[in-house]
Write a protein that binds this DNA or RNA. Structure first.
Lengths: 413, 413
DNA sequence: AACATTTTTTTCGACACCCGCAATAAATAA
DNA sequence: TTATTTATTGCGGGTGTCGAAAAAAATGTT
């Protein structure tokens, strides 16, 4: 049922491709773009002339350090920062932050706020989110009409269309259609993204060498989350955001998980599980939230001497290793980024993880699987939301389907 | 790095789309094709005139039963059976079969053969495969030059480019580049496909209502295999054929698996595992191949009275249930087809499977997950290979990139 | 300093493709 | 026999891309 390609789609797609090439490459010349896209110079010339005229791209002659070559110097093309703006909202445990980002990807304003997400009633939680966005949009330095997209990120499960939060560990509330709420409130298209997916998106932009076609981002925090990129594209479930790595089964009928079930990977490797194990509490003990400082202290103790703390990290590593082994059986091994506060304790986790993965089919060449760590997840999530929103603007607003293109070309420098 | 769309790609893609629409719909009229593809009537008219002229499609006025409508009757378009042919090779335990299929998908010739795959030396195994293909190609009824593609299917792991068998349970041999071998021998493009992937492809063609965008085909046989379709496309690993569901970890350090590791799903749910368990053998006992007749007898005994046989199936169901639960945590639930000899014993497996999956995050609405069974996998594998090869011909040969189109239009009726 | 060389970018003419609309074809209903 | 309905084809127009040539903008050379 895939649909045919019309003649006008052609221009649309090639426009999108040029924009995307510029966003990826920074300041490519027309010749470079022609090379990477495979289109002819004439076409690139025509499209970029359009884009410059519409104020989406600018010519940046500022490429002095090139020189030293014969021939006419290349003219770098860059994204016009004033072409549009996007706004990100990241909601995490007891913490809310927003940022305004210009079209070139630079943060131009931000605001953060503490709040008790675990106990707030539904209307308050929604209200605070709406209020902080409104404050940013009312900033006199900001041209509201240029804000073309809102992207919200949250820890937990979202639906596969990125419209609503279905479930989250940071609140007992469920099924909040944040995307619809924000759209109705501000009249700006919005999405509700899963935090780990956004981490993966951000990594892809930060380090495209390492994180390109296939890789995994795992959040080691209160819960265990995963963002998965396969064949260059973000992998999502068929109904939800999917990739609930933390709730793959490690030991059938095993330790109590925060999700209410038993034996999930998270029930051995989540912060609360490590804590519970280190404190020699029962595996049936109710999960509790553990502060980052406490986790760091726990890791320090585990490094100091062998004892229940070290054993707790060992068990976490084992659960993660067998879980990754099962995952790798499905998708083949890929580079892994460990993100979050417990990623700072990865030295304690890694030996058991590697030992476990080596016992699985997916870990055939376990020594060659490489792990990278990044203790702070929030900047990654924000960055991912920003890039998600910006690429939406690139594709859907600046290379629109069949809508009138009038009105989108604005803010000419 | 995705490449731009050139002007000539346009026609190519739309040609491919028309062919694909005809293959899917059977005998659609030009108007129907225009509707499903979204292209204009003029375009469809022009493209189908080309395709008819080249002998790829034919007009089949044979649609008498339509009638009863006013207006000019539709002219059905059909694939010209003589436009090309493909050849499938299915290699399974002690069994080799080939079939020649015409462009419309009808089997025109087949041949089968027993052989001792487990003990054959490398050259003999390859030699037998080549020989049986050669015999079919030398059939005087067949125009060799019309054979446009070979597709071979094998139980086991293949590489992600469908070129080579990497590992298979039917032989101790590894890394046989069957695709290259066949191509060199016969000068016809070939692929080496994973059996379960082909089962999934076949199901998608057989019952597109049920098996469309997202579904799972699981082979319950000597080993446990899986073919996975996500968002309408066959899912493969990044390096191998992937989807080694049978080697996800059910119980860390548990029963001995045929792969040499411990605790895999297959070590509880493969035929040998069920047999081992029913015979009250140790979980460390070396896996043995069990005949289909023995498995059917075992299932009969399990149905008759409660005992170790029934318990063995229960355990298999549990392993499959927890495995599916972990899988569903990643991709969300989807319809499942159980294929293979033990699928005929699914009545014995299902209760424990459902009980297990209900204990997992992926089994949230476990009662709504539906299972279908199909005891005979070989026809499915062959069908999948055939469709794979035919769609390749559709896309790469009859809607070629920039190659000269001369020489592909042949066999005009 | 003038001219040659190199490389990038733009311009121009040609060609291919798709679309919309009108015309034609082929049936049924009145 | 004529009107109506539906399917298919033909034609003119518009748009997009490509290739080749020209123009532009630098460095090297004499």
């Amino acid at each position: 049922m895939s649909v045919g390609i019309r003649h006008d789609d052609l221009r649309r797609r090639n426009r999108a491709m040029v924009i995307s090439a510029v966003r990826r490459a920074g300041q490519p010349s027309r010749t470079e773009i022609a090379a990477t896209t495979g289109l002819s110079h004439s076409t690139i010339s025509a499209i970029s002339a359009d884009l410059i005229q519409e104020g989406i791209l600018t010519e940046s002659k500022a490429s002095e350090p090139t020189a030293l070559k014969r021939g006419r110097p290349q003219i770098g093309l860059a994204l016009n920062p004033e072409a549009a703006a996007v706004l990100t909202v990241v909601l995490s445990l007891n913490f809310l932050s927003v940022a305004v980002i210009d079209y070139a990807g630079q943060v131009v304003a931000e605001e953060q706020q503490r709040l008790d997400t675990l106990v707030m009633p539904r209307d308050d939680l929604i209200g605070e989110c709406v209020a902080i966005v409104r404050r940013r949009l009312q900033d006199p330095d900001l041209d509201v009409s240029s804000v073309a997209r809102l992207a919200m990120g949250i820890q937990g499960i979202t639906d596969s269309h990125a419209r609503a939060m279905l479930w989250s560990p940071i609140t007992p509330l469920t099924d909040i259609p944040f995307a619809d709420i924000l759209e109705q409130e501000f009249g700006i298209p919005a999405t509700m993204e899963n935090d780990c997916n956004m981490m993966a998106v951000a990594l892809q932009w930060r380090d495209p060498e390492r994180y390109r076609d296939d890789f995994i981002a795992i959040l080691l925090s209160h819960g265990i989350g995963m963002g998965l990129v396969l064949k260059g594209a973000l992998f999502t479930g068929t109904h939800s955001s999917g990739g609930e790595f933390g709730h793959m089964i490690h030991r059938p009928g095993g330790a109590l998980c925060r999700c209410g079930r038993r034996g999930c990977v998270e029930a051995y490797a989540g912060n609360y599980a490590i804590w519970r194990s280190a404190m020699k509490m029962s595996e049936d003990a109710e999960p509790v939230d553990v502060g980052d400082a406490d986790m760091r202290a726990l890791a320090a103790k585990a490094r100091e001497k062998d004892g229940p703390e070290r054993e707790a990290y060992r068990r976490a590593g084992e659960a993660l290793g067998f879980g990754l082994g099962s995952l790798f059986a499905l998708i083949d091994p890929a580079p892994v980024a460990m993100v979050g506060v417990s990623a700072a304790a990865f030295d304690l986790i890694e030996p058991a993880l590697r030992a476990a993965i080596a016992q699985t089919a997916g870990g055939q060449h376990s020594e060659s699987i490489s792990f990278d760590t990044e203790p702070n997840e929030l900047p990654l999530i924000r960055e991912g939301c920003a890039m998600r929103a910006l690429t939406f603007v690139d594709q859907e607003i600046f290379a629109p389907g069949m809508q009138a293109r009038a009105g989108s070309g604005k803010n000419v420098a």
